[in-house]
Write a protein that binds this DNA or RNA. Sequence first.
DNA 1: ATATTATTATACCAGTTGGTATTTAACTCT
DNA 2: AGAGTTAAATACCAACTGGTATAATAATAT
Lengths: 200, 200
Amino acid sequence: MAGGRPRKSDLNDVLDTVMKTFWIRGFEVTSMNQLSDATGMAKPGLYKAFGDKQALYAKALKLYLTKFAEPMIDDLLNSPDSLEPVLRRNFERLTSTALNKAGPKGCFIACSLNEYPNMPTDLAELTKSYNEQRIAAYAQRIRTAIKQGELSADANVKALSIYLTGQVLAITVMARSGTDKPSLDRFIDMAIQALPLVEA
Amino acid sequence: MAGGRPRKSDLNDVLDTVMKTFWIRGFEVTSMNQLSDATGMAKPGLYKAFGDKQALYAKALKLYLTKFAEPMIDDLLNSPDSLEPVLRRNFERLTSTALNKAGPKGCFIACSLNEYPNMPTDLAELTKSYNEQRIAAYAQRIRTAIKQGELSADANVKALSIYLTGQVLAITVMARSGTDKPSLDRFIDMAIQALPLVEA
DNA sequence: ATATTATTATACCAGTTGGTATTTAACTCT
DNA sequence: AGAGTTAAATACCAACTGGTATAATAATAT
């Protein structure tokens, strides 16, 4: 049937670059021209392939979800390790990004949540729903931990899950604003100490 | 000698409105035209009175410091109450803003820190230094608490002060993104539980 | 070869950005 | 009543914003 001029660049690579750019800079302050420069794909191509800026951002956020957030949630829910090391690993994935000098830092969903009041409502709600997915995942892991006797039986599941998500937000802001790795590590220690862990 | 046409609006009021606008929206996404509309002061007047956008933001941030941050620090350091109620009051000042539907939410310094990678270096460093002032204040209060036996003697002052500041960042992001007040209250409970408080 | 299809590159649109020059209005002092 | 001083209002600047129309290019199918 067809043919057509071949693509200059792989759309997956393009979206990956878009994701990183939005992740570093944010929705409003990243211009389509910057994305065009960063990806090497001319603006009309971006619009044709992904839709308008809002749709492009939604696709970038979705890519983050599948590429970063879901693997973290998967480890959280399915690792055989006990709660404490699982959470520590979870948080350390975020703090390790603090070392990538020029790259994106912390959690993209958290970065996006920071823009909540400035974003188109659709994107704000999308971001919030992704964040609530994470809260739900923490809640589920906490329930398991209670059943397995790792957490005290009267632990408040909802409060704990919001608490842990809050720590993700805090780590993200700190990492983005140049807090050094040792400080972040100590922060994780403190954050985990708050849990009503049952001594083994 | 002089005289001149009288000011239409009080500069303190203008700067107060500027502060709130930047606090709600942020540095990059707030335009000088918006500030002009919000304050009722024409753009050239803003430039004449406060300098360029960057200088205006610095003055707005400074106003937040004197009007909100320093009173909180003052209460933190000088209140006769013990550590736990002082900290609770400290955090609750932030969560109470979550109810102001249209107004600014959380801590302006925390909001500003979110923009760290997108800001002119000067403003980013200024914001960071204000945040470090808060860390130092927490550290001082923690040292006092240790001396007075409210906190266990082997508490890590630096880790705790960064931890508490992190909670401010978390509360700010959550309040800005529409987390309801009860959830924020439970978050505060959890955050305070993490402290190695000595039972009375 | 030619028609078809799809992607590229260039140029462009109206609206907005941070910032300013210019004119006009409102006050005080002599 | 001026003269001097300060602020206000309007209009403007080049650069950039999100988004698009147009034309050139590179492949395939007949």
